[in-house]
Design a protein around this nucleic acid. Structure first.
Lengths: 377, 377
DNA sequence: CATCTCCTTGCAATCGTTGGCGGGGTAGAG
DNA sequence: CTCTACCCCGCCAACGATTGCAAGGAGATG
């Protein structure tokens, strides 16, 4: 008594194909399946294929999944898709997954614990064969739980403490180290840091990079030069930079823990009439689409977004194939991209002051969204 | 002989819950289902719920879908997710769908016919309950085919000729009309147009708006002032503007059919040493995230991305509920956002030349991607 | 010519859930 | 006390596909 949509005949099933081809459904199934095709006679295969084509038959993935136990879907958990770092990552994931017959199922958490639980519940309910997570916190029991229930979990961008889950990310500390070197090379000595949330590996690692960068440059750490942002958002960056300026210590450069924060810093500087890079240099992290188009074009640390996605896809597929294999943590090398937001500090502005070769590539066009995009990293 | 992932027990099924609760699986099903819960004794419901909680039972959506004929998924077909207009739309779609128990299944076509066919095949194979399409061309037989096979199809942003499918878009022509008014009000008379592909309703409608705008302003149409871009990409915008400048007619403003094209135009102007808006004004369309952050901040036509998404979700849900209802074509009103890329033409630059109140809102941070983002609209 | 073997195909069970149908038990009314 | 009615619940079948098992047939070999 299945009420089919009134319009037209119902979708053809495997039985229909079998009937037309004059064979048993099981035979039709085998004929259509690349893996089992060689068990059935070539002529029969042809007949079945013809019938399938004639009927415009499309196997029902749901039924297949139910039987095989594989849904062919991979959950992708993001803070917020409208944050510009994620689309390229998601594209990478999709492009890596689709050839293997999988499709991504995306869920946004808006950095809300509760919403994340709901998203994960939803994904598990839909029997995803694996989950790629961009919202991992350093301590994240639920993810470990899911993983130990047998569902492959792969982290992107962020890792969890202990590295017990496969992951694709960049070495945050070394990225920031390069930034400190760059700034010190330009002559900066009072370098501030708008740090990201410390419960995220990115915020934590970049702060660590900042400290060791200062140390190896022989600069000492002034607590007044560090503020902690509560999220990776432009608003938090604005607040952070404002606070730094309020403390009124001399300060010639700000390293923001990511591009969003950096944009907030730029806005804060402009708000009090300071010019970047003339008065204060600003550096971000991520090389999000479009930060090369804002003014001043942002000096930042480039992270290969798309490749992060494709690698994550590969990792999750590997893990599906062999759930007991070794846990791989893949670290891609970040790369400093010097643009126009960094320059020698005010005191040192003389002719030919050192400027590292700028690595301008990729010019892309993008634009901002309608929702608050928080918490990129 | 089902080979379960070695680690731990297999996922609990409804039968397990039923066994623990001491009832028949069917009863457990009814007890857990809000719709049928009232047929079951309250105590039994409680017992079943307890058992479900104890076992951490999660209904298998796949099995449910197979039985009920609804997959709970909606296909979303895009040109390219890394194009900044889409993330907000997708967020809108997701947010509109999830409360109703549906999830979006995203597919990118890269504006390639063949890939689009594959994406659609994939979606149909996964038994999506509806499809939201952002890649519609004015003539698009496959979509009509799918729709008449009983699958609700909703168009976003673009429509097809004849409006035979439900859609959410903006009135392209009236948006451009407002742009022409704005420019004419500033004193421009030689207004060029980098038109979008004419096989897309957006490109077509905006070109039409351009022509009627000139007409109602009493300006005559000079064919030399119009070039047709082959895609909605920055590269095409660059080529278009270059060509316009080569024709060397005097020209004081360029209306690009969308923001991507406009960014290409800006680049082309900069390339030949022309300043925007001093020498040439440039206008885009879409108000993509971030075009308020490039320099000069782009004057454009704002399109409520997120709302387009939520409305599309609503429309597709309506159509699932009543597939035979009337076909709704929803047109949201676009709104001119005057920023810094438009100013009076060179000849007219005098004090206090009229500048419409600028509608700066939303400042968002975004960034470009690693893939060529083509064909936004 | 008989028997063995291999290739091809059919049969039936199953994945986890839902929905129609009918039966047993209890309570209320006559 | 009996009949009717109603409430709950169990049984069976089915959604559409896959897969182990076994049987049928044809060809090869002794």
């Amino acid at each position: 008594m299945t009420q089919r949509p009134s319009s037209g005949a119902r979708r053809p099933t495997l039985r229909d194909v079998a009937r037309v081809a004059g064979v048993h459904p099981a035979t039709a199934s085998r004929a259509l399946n690349a893996h089992t095709r060689d068990v059935v006679h070539a002529d029969t295969v042809r007949r079945v294929e013809e019938a399938a084509r004639a009927l415009d038959y499309r196997p029902d993935q749901l039924a297949r999944s139910l039987k095989t136990g594989r849904s062919g879907t991979i959950g992708v958990v993001l803070p917020d898709l409208t944050n510009p770092v994620f689309p390229p990552i998601v594209r990478g994931i999709e492009d890596g997954l689709v050839p293997a017959g999988y499709v991504p199922l995306i869920g946004n958490t808006d950095t809300d614990e509760e919403r994340e639980q709901l998203v994960l519940d939803r994904l598990q309910g839909r029997q995803v064969d694996g989950i790629i997570v961009a919202t991992a916190k350093r301590h994240h029991p639920r993810l470990l739980e899911i993983a130990s229930a047998g569902v492959p979990v792969v982290l992107v961008n962020r890792v969890i403490d202990g590295n017990r889950l496969p992951s694709v990310s960049v070495n945050d500390a070394s990225g920031i180290l390069a930034v400190v070197d760059h700034l010190v090379g330009l002559g900066h000595r009072r370098i501030a840091h708008v740090a990201g949330p410390q419960d995220l590996s990115t915020g934590f690692g970049r702060y660590a990079g900042y400290r060791s960068g200062l140390e190896s440059a022989g600069l000492d750490m002034d607590p007044d030069l560090v503020v902690f942002a509560d999220s990776f958002s432009e608003a938090a960056g604005f607040r952070g930079a404002t606070e730094l300026l309020r403390r009124a210590r001399p300060l010639s450069a700000i390293i923001a823990a990511n591009d969003m924060l950096a944009l907030g810093c730029l806005r804060a500087l402009a708000g009090v009439g300071l010019s970047c890079p003339r008065d204060v240099s600003v550096v971000g992290f991520n090389d999000m689409p479009f930060v090369d188009r804002v003014s001043p074009a942002l000096t930042t640390v480039r992270l290969p977004h798309y490749e992060v996605g494709t690698h994550a896809a590969t990792l999750v597929l590997e893990r599906i194939a062999d759930p007991t294999g070794p846990v791989k943590a893949l670290f891609l090398t970040p790369e400093l991209v010097a643009r126009d937001s960094t320059a020698p500090p005010p005191g040192l502005r003389r002719l030919g002051a050192g400027r590292t070769a700028s690595t301008r590539r990729h010019s892309r066009v993008g634009a901002a969204s309608t929702l608050p995009a928080e918490d990129a990293d």
